[in-house]
Design a protein around this nucleic acid. Structure first.
Lengths: 220, 220
DNA sequence: TCAAAAGTGTTGACGTTACACCCATGG
DNA sequence: CCATGGGTGTAACGTCAACACTTTTGA
């Protein structure tokens, strides 16, 4: 089967920047390309948009195919369409950002990918296409979202914490997402203004040091 | 000539939200569609992306074709790609925002447009496709850009002023772009902090009232 | 008793908002 | 002389960043 048009048409893909925190550092999910161009090079996961699905739905489908995750809030970054960004021809891509709890996540190779792996954001391999630029843009956007507590994006931050967490644990998560350190007291003020959290009355145990109060995110 | 592909491909267009100030109010340039679908309905100008041009360049080309303007700073808004947004089939569009001085501008019909006209942002006709949504998004983004003095976007604000202008004239322009009124003294503080302007020493004349000092934007 | 993390308030700088009166001119 | 827009300063407030010491526990 083939498709014929009166005018040439670009291909349209979505690319999904899947961020997570693993081993205490911000990581991004990349795939190793199985085929040319850039065979063997790492790239942002993504794929072609189907004719009957919304851009966001296409991105969600790709995300589920490549990671098994569903129902993730996605945020559109922007479209990238330099005419020579893909050596195969004209490919316009719409980039999305996802922030996912990495525990639930099995990254796996797919039809276009030999392998899928997490990379620390500060230790990236060379990337295919213009993916380095897209990734840099997305990382900056992620930090903005979390700082501004854009809630669909930022709520996910709590998925990186156990249900009951200490304030220090929370601080490490937010610092990782924002990419910079914060003052302890200022962080605690910020957290309790921006989010509703409550003291469970319990204390952490097992640490070698002073036990910390355990908090939880108030449901509302 | 026709073009054949193994998989179906969407069409890709750019739409350009061309804003200007006319008669003291924010207006947007719309075209009246010459052909179905939505024949006779007003729509955001735009058109198909060529295979060898960047998205931004495509938008600039369309902008020049429809308005005669060139070298305008464009800002990408985002991509819109709901599968049913165009009844002809799958059309994904990337929206851009332009803010142009309307004096230099002859809006004219083109190959796809019967007519091109400015509409006050608060007095819009029914719009084709999902253009009402795009326009609302773009108007909000414009206000944010101007407020934050994102300079490529906001510098254009001074094109709505004569070379030598009074502070009241400037205030009217910025209020129009931001969509809300400001306190006179606070506006003047903001203006002189955010921009470098200088008093020319001259005074406006011809008014029925007290002459106002004339300022100019300092070149740098 | 020591190492390590927990916990806790105040201050100053800054930007933003609100607000009211006199001035100069043309008609 | 009056109507109209031009011109000017200050106080209150909220936000944000900087900053240091005491407490509790396990080893």
């Amino acid at each position: 089967m083939s498709y014929t048009y009166d005018y040439p048409r670009p291909s349209v893909t979505t690319d999904i920047l899947v961020f997570s925190i693993r081993d205490g550092v911000l990581q991004v999910l990349l795939i190793e390309r199985k085929i040319d161009p850039f065979q063997g090079t790492w790239a942002i996961p993504g794929g072609f948009v189907q004719m009957d699905e919304d851009l966001r739905d296409g991105a969600l489908r790709e995300l589920e195919e490549e990671t098994g995750l569903s129902d993730i809030p996605l945020r559109q970054l922007r479209a990238y369409g330099a005419p020579d960004r893909d050596p195969r021809g004209r490919v316009i891509t719409v980039a999305f950002i996802a922030l996912v709890p990495s525990d639930e996540l099995i990254a796996r190779g797919g039809s276009d990918a030999q392998d899928a792996r997490w990379f620390p954001i500060d230790d990236l391999p060379p990337l295919a296409f213009d993916h380095a630029e897209i990734l840099a843009d997305g990382r900056a956007e992620l930090a903005r979202d979390v700082t501004a507590s854009i809630h669909d994006s930022a709520l996910v931050a709590f998925d990186f914490l156990p249900e009951k967490f200490t304030l220090s644990q929370a601080q490490r998560v937010f610092e990782t997402l924002r990419g910079e350190e914060m003052d302890k007291r200022n962080f605690r003020k910020w957290l309790s203004n921006e989010w509703s959290i409550e003291d469970t009355g319990e204390k952490s145990s097992g640490g070698r040091h002073r036990p910390a109060a355990l908090f939880r995110l108030k449901p509302d």
